[in-house]
Protein backbone atom coordinates (compact mmCIF):
# COMPACT_ATOMS: atom_id res chain seq x y z
CA UNK A 1 0.00 0.00 0.00
CA UNK A 2 2.80 2.39 0.91
CA UNK A 3 4.38 1.75 -2.48
CA UNK A 4 1.11 2.57 -4.21
CA UNK A 5 0.79 5.85 -2.34
CA UNK A 6 4.35 6.78 -3.30
CA UNK A 7 3.63 5.92 -6.93
CA UNK A 8 0.39 7.94 -6.88
CA UNK A 9 2.25 10.90 -5.36
CA UNK A 10 4.82 10.79 -8.14
CA UNK A 11 2.03 10.47 -10.70
CA UNK A 12 0.04 13.44 -9.41
CA UNK A 13 3.08 15.71 -9.16
CA UNK A 14 4.26 14.76 -12.65
CA UNK A 15 0.83 15.60 -14.08
CA UNK A 16 1.04 19.09 -12.57
CA UNK A 17 4.57 19.53 -13.87
CA UNK A 18 3.29 18.49 -17.32
CA UNK A 19 0.54 21.11 -17.27
CA UNK A 20 2.92 23.84 -16.13
CA UNK A 21 5.69 22.99 -18.57
CA UNK A 22 3.39 22.94 -21.55
CA UNK A 23 0.85 25.73 -21.12
CA UNK A 24 3.14 28.46 -22.46
CA UNK A 25 3.95 27.13 -25.92
CA UNK A 26 3.44 29.32 -29.04
CA UNK A 27 1.08 27.75 -31.62
CA UNK A 28 3.92 27.47 -34.13
CA UNK A 29 5.51 24.76 -32.05
CA UNK A 30 2.42 22.72 -31.34
CA UNK A 31 3.09 20.16 -34.04
CA UNK A 32 6.74 19.54 -33.09
CA UNK A 33 5.68 19.51 -29.45
CA UNK A 34 3.05 16.90 -30.16
CA UNK A 35 5.55 14.66 -31.89
CA UNK A 36 8.21 15.34 -29.25
CA UNK A 37 5.92 14.44 -26.37
CA UNK A 38 4.83 11.46 -28.41
CA UNK A 39 8.45 10.31 -28.51
CA UNK A 40 8.58 10.62 -24.72
CA UNK A 41 5.54 8.37 -24.41
CA UNK A 42 7.82 5.72 -25.87
CA UNK A 43 9.33 5.61 -22.36
CA UNK A 44 7.43 2.35 -22.14
CA UNK A 45 10.60 1.00 -23.83
CA UNK A 46 12.13 0.89 -20.35
CA UNK A 47 9.24 -1.29 -19.21
CA UNK A 48 9.64 -3.51 -22.26
CA UNK A 49 13.36 -4.01 -21.54
CA UNK A 50 12.68 -4.85 -17.90
CA UNK A 51 10.01 -7.46 -18.66
CA UNK A 52 12.39 -9.03 -21.16
CA UNK A 53 15.07 -9.31 -18.49
CA UNK A 54 12.76 -11.18 -16.13
CA UNK A 55 10.97 -13.18 -18.85
CA UNK A 56 10.14 -16.67 -17.68
CA UNK A 57 9.22 -18.36 -20.95
CA UNK A 58 9.86 -18.25 -24.68
CA UNK A 59 6.42 -16.75 -25.22
CA UNK A 60 7.07 -13.80 -22.92
CA UNK A 61 10.52 -13.37 -24.43
CA UNK A 62 9.08 -13.14 -27.94
CA UNK A 63 6.31 -10.79 -26.82
CA UNK A 64 8.90 -8.75 -24.94
CA UNK A 65 11.05 -8.47 -28.05
CA UNK A 66 8.02 -7.22 -30.00
CA UNK A 67 7.25 -4.70 -27.25
CA UNK A 68 10.86 -3.44 -27.34
CA UNK A 69 10.66 -3.08 -31.13
CA UNK A 70 7.34 -1.18 -31.08
CA UNK A 71 8.47 1.17 -28.31
CA UNK A 72 11.80 1.77 -30.08
CA UNK A 73 10.02 2.80 -33.29
CA UNK A 74 8.01 5.24 -31.17
CA UNK A 75 11.12 6.68 -29.50
CA UNK A 76 13.56 6.80 -32.42
CA UNK A 77 10.98 7.82 -35.02
CA UNK A 78 9.45 10.39 -32.71
CA UNK A 79 12.67 12.19 -31.82
CA UNK A 80 14.00 12.14 -35.41
CA UNK A 81 10.76 13.41 -36.93
CA UNK A 82 10.64 16.20 -34.34
CA UNK A 83 14.22 17.12 -35.17
CA UNK A 84 13.42 17.24 -38.90
CA UNK A 85 10.57 19.66 -38.28
CA UNK A 86 12.55 21.87 -35.91
CA UNK A 87 15.56 21.96 -38.23
CA UNK A 88 13.38 23.74 -40.78
CA UNK A 89 12.53 26.51 -38.35
CA UNK A 90 16.18 26.83 -37.47
CA UNK A 91 17.51 27.07 -41.02
CA UNK A 92 14.97 29.82 -41.63
CA UNK A 93 16.29 31.90 -38.76
CA UNK A 94 19.71 32.28 -40.35
CA UNK A 95 18.34 34.07 -43.43
Amino acid sequence: MAELVTALTVFALAVFVGFEVITKVPPTLHTPLMSGSNAISGITLIGAIIVCLVASSTLTLVLGSIAVALATVNVVGGFLVTHRMLAMFKSRKKD
Binding site: F11, V21, L33, S41
Partner: peptide
Protein backbone atom coordinates in the same frame (compact mmCIF):
# COMPACT_ATOMS: atom_id res chain seq x y z
CA UNK B 1 7.55 5.34 -16.58
CA UNK B 2 5.08 7.00 -14.25
CA UNK B 3 6.70 10.42 -14.57
CA UNK B 4 7.25 10.46 -18.33
CA UNK B 5 3.87 8.86 -18.98
CA UNK B 6 1.93 11.39 -16.95
CA UNK B 7 3.94 14.26 -18.48
CA UNK B 8 2.73 13.15 -21.89
CA UNK B 9 -0.75 12.54 -20.56
CA UNK B 10 -0.89 16.16 -19.40
CA UNK B 11 0.61 17.59 -22.60
Amino acid sequence: LIIAGSLVGAS
